[in-house]
Design a protein around this nucleic acid. Structure first.
Lengths: 236, 236, 236, 236
DNA sequence: AATGAATGAGCCTTCATTCAT
DNA sequence: GATGAATGAAGGCTCATTCAT
C-alpha cells in the first residue's frame, strides 16, 4: 500500500517520537471527525508517514490510540489556556477576559470540542481511565479559583461563590456554541454564527457571568468601565 | 434468537404500525446509546419483536432507520413541549417558566439529547435531509416568539431582542447540563448534579435569561415578585 | 475466492444441517492434522462447500468450531464402539474381544487419536467445557463394567478389580500405538508397524490385560482355549 | 519491556553459551506448554534475559529454535536415564528396575513428554531432521538390549524376544500415564493419579513386562522374591 | 408480511521476521 | 554482539445487506 519512497522513510527513521506525534495528529483529526467506532485504523494509517503496524506497535490497539488522541487533545487545549495572561488585572476584568478567552479558544479548537462530545457519548469511560487527563483538569480551574479568591477578598465578588459552578456557566455557553452549531445552523440558519452575532453572544456571556459573580455595585462599576473603553482583551 | 411464541407473534401480526413503532423505539434507544456507527442492526433486531428483515422492509437501510429514529426523538420531545401551558401569564413570568421547563425537559430526555449530540458529530447531515424535523423546529420557538412580542409590546422586554438568540441561551445551558454531564462529572465530581445544585443552576439560568430579555425596571420588579412568592411554575 | 458455480450452490441450499456437517467434517480433518492454533479458518473454509462467513454463522468462532469438531470426533468413535457385539460371550472371551477391538478401532481412527492428543496438549480445557463429551464417556466403559461384574460373579475375574484402571491399561497400549507411531518409527524404524508385528503386539496386549483381570486358573483355561482355535473376532 | 539493569546485562555478556542456554530453557518450556504454532517468539523473548533479535541470531528462525529445544529435551531426559545404575543386578531384577524407573522418570519430565506429543502431532518431521536425536535414541535401548542378552544367556528370558517391542511396552504405559492424564482425568476423575493408585499402576506394568519377557519358571521365582522383600528399587 | 440462511467486503489485530545503528 | 524500530503478509472476526421460500 502506501507508496512512500525510500528517501522519505529514511528522513524520519529512528525518531520514534516524531513517528508517534505524526500518528497522534492524524488519529486526533480522524477520531474527531468520525468518532471512535466511525474512525478506521486503515484510514488513519494511510494518512500517516508510517504503516498500520506501527500504530499497534506504539499504541497497542484502537482504543489505546483513541485514548492517546484524547489526551493529546486535552493537552493541546490546556497548553493554549496556559498562555492566557491575566497579568495584574483586577478580579472583575480578569474574569471578563477569562470568559471571552474561553469562548474564543473553544471556537478555535473544534477538534477538541468534538473529542469531548465523543467522550460524552461514551459516558466518559476513557477519560475516567486516563489519570493524565484528570490531573490536567484539576489544574484547569486554578486561574478561576484565584480570580474568585481575589474578588472575594477585595469585596467585588459575592460570597459563597462556587468556582466549579462558575466554570460550568462559562463552559456551557462556550462549548455549546461549537458543539451544537451544525444542528442549530440547520434549523435556524447561519445568522447566529456570523462575525457580529458571535461577538454579541460573547458579550452577552461575559455579561451573564459577571452578573452571577459580582456584587451589584461592582457590576455597575465595571459596566461603566467597559462602556467607556474599547475592550482590548475581548478581541479574538 | 429470542424465543418468541407463536401466540406472541400473532398478537401484533397484521399491525404494521405497531411493528414499526416497536422497531423505532428499540432503534432510538440503541442509536442514542451507541451512536450511528456504534449501533448494530443485529442488536436492534434482537431486541425487537420482529426480525432483521423487517427493519430493511420498513426502513430500507441502517441510515433510514437512524433518520426515522432521529425524527421520532424530535417528535417525542416536541410533543412534550407542546404540553407546556403558559396560559395567560405575563411575558416575564411566561419566559421564566419556559426556561425552567426547558431545563427540566432536557434532563428528562437524555436519549433526545444524545441523538442531537450524535447528529452534531455527523454535522447534522441527516437532520438537514429530514424535512419533517426542520418543520417541527420552526414551530419550536413559536412560544418564545410570542412571549417576546408580548413583552416588547407591554414594554417589559428590551427592544431589538432576537428570539433565536434567546433560544440559543436557553438551550446552551439546558443542553450542556445533560450532554456534558459524564465528562464534567468525571473531572469535577458529582456535586453539581445533585438535587440542590441542579436547582441552583436552574435558578441561575432563569435569572440570566431574564436579565438578557427584560428592561432593568421590569427585571427589578419580577425579582421582587419571585422573592416574595414560592415560584410554583419552577418545580419539577 | 472459492469458485463455486451457481448450480452447485443451489443443490445444498436451505439444508443447514448438511452445511454444518460439511463444515464439521473438514474442520475435524484440519484440526486433527494441524492442531488448534495450527489450523486456518481460511483453509477450512476453502475446503468446504460454503464460505468462511458461514463457519462463524454456525459455530461462533474458531474455538467453537474446534469444540464441535472434538465432539464430532468423540461421537463418531463412540458410535463405532457401540457396534461392538459381545453377544453372550463368557466374561474372559468378551474381555479379550473388547481389548482386540479397541486396539483395532484406534488404529482405524487416527483423526480421533490426534484430536485427543491435541486436547491433552491443551490440558483438556475444551473437553472439560463440553458436557456432551463428558456424558458420552461415562457410557464408554459400560461394556467393560458389565464384563467385570459378570466375571467376578462367575469367579473367573479377580476380586477388587477396578474397571477404570483396566480401561487405562487397554487404552494406554491402543492409544500409544497410534499416537506415538511417528516418533517411534523415526527412531526405531517401521518394523513394529508392519502387519505381523502389529498382530503380535495386539496378542500381547490381550494377554497382559487378561493376566491382570483373570484368576490364575481361569487364565490357564482361556490360554488353552485360544491356542486351540483361530480367534475369529480378533482379525482387523 | 522487562527492565533489565546494566549490571545484570554485563554479568552474562560475553558468555554466548549462557545466553543460548537461557533462551533454550525458556523456549523448551514455552513450546512444551503451547506447541509449535501456539508458542510465540515474542513471549519467549520476553521471558529471556536477551532480546528477540538474539533468538534469530543464534537459532535462525522459529523452527530452528523449536528443533534445538526438542534436542535439549531429549538430551536432558537421556542424561537422567544414564544415571540409572543397574549394577550387577540379575536380568529379571534389572528389567523390573528399568521399567519402574522409566515410569517414574516420565512422570518427572512432563515437558519432555509434551515435546514428544507435539512432535507426533507434526509427524516427527523435526525429529527425523535431527541427527543428534536419532543418535541419542539408538543408545537409549542399549541398557535394555544388554539386559535381554544377559537374560537369554542365563535362560531366565524367553527366546525370540525383541528389545524394541519390549521398549514399546514399557514406553506405552509410562508415556500414556503422563500424556493423557488431562483427558483421562477430565472424564474419569483424578483417582488414578493419586499416590497409591499410581503405585498400583506401576507395579502392574512391571508385572506385565516381566510376564512378557521371562520364562514361566523365572517369572514364578521373581514373584516370590519380590513378595518376600520390600522392593527398594521401585520407590520413587 | 415474514423468516432463516447466506454473502462479500472490510475491519481490527497478530505473527514471524528484518533493518539500521 | 546487541538493540529498538520497523515491516508485510495474513489471521480471526464482524458488518450491513440480500436471497430463497
Amino acid at each position: 500500500m502506501a507508496l512512500k519512497t525510500e528517501t522519505e522513510r529514511r528522513s524520519w527513521r529512528q525518531d520514534p517520537e516524531a513517528v508517534k506525534r505524526d500518528i497522534l495528529a492524524v488519529a486526533l483529526s480522524e477520531f474527531a471527525e468520525n468518532g471512535l467506532s466511525g474512525a478506521r485504523v486503515e484510514t488513519i494509517a494511510s494518512r500517516t508517514r508510517t504503516s498500520k503496524r506501527m500504530i499497534y506497535y506504539y499504541f497497542t490497539d484502537k482504543l489505546g490510540l483513541y485514548t492517546a488522541a484524547l489526551e493529546a487533545a486535552y493537552m493541546k487545549v490546556r497548553e493554549g489556556e496556559a498562555a492566557l495572561d491575566l497579568g495584574g488585572l483586577p478580579p472583575a476584568r480578569a474574569l471578563a477576559r477569562l470568559v471571552a478567552f474561553t469562548f474564543d479558544h473553544h471556537r478555535r479548537n473544534p477538534d477538541f470540542i468534538r473529542m469531548v462530545m465523543i467522550e460524552n457519548i461514551h459516558n466518559a469511560e476513557n477519560l475516567v481511565a486516563s489519570q493524565v487527563i484528570r490531573d490536567m483538569n484539576v489544574a484547569a480551574i486554578d486561574k478561576l479559583e484565584d480570580i474568585c479568591k481575589r474578588g472575594q477578598e477585595d469585596g467585588t465578588f459575592r460570597q459563597g461563590l462556587d468556582p466549579v459552578a462558575l466554570h460550568w456557566q462559562i463552559s456551557a455557553a462556550s462549548f455549546f456554541n461549537v458543539s451544537n452549531r451544525p444542528t442549530f445552523n440547520a434549523i435556524f440558519g447561519p445568522n447566529l454564527f456570523t462575525g457580529t452575532a458571535q461577538a454579541d453572544l460573547r458579550r452577552q456571556i461575559v455579561e451573564s457571568v459577571l452578573a452571577i459573580a459580582l456584587t451589584p455595585p461592582a457590576l455597575t462599576e465595571i459596566r461603566a468601565e467597559i462602556a467607556g473603553t474599547a475592550a482590548p482583551g475581548l478581541s479574538g
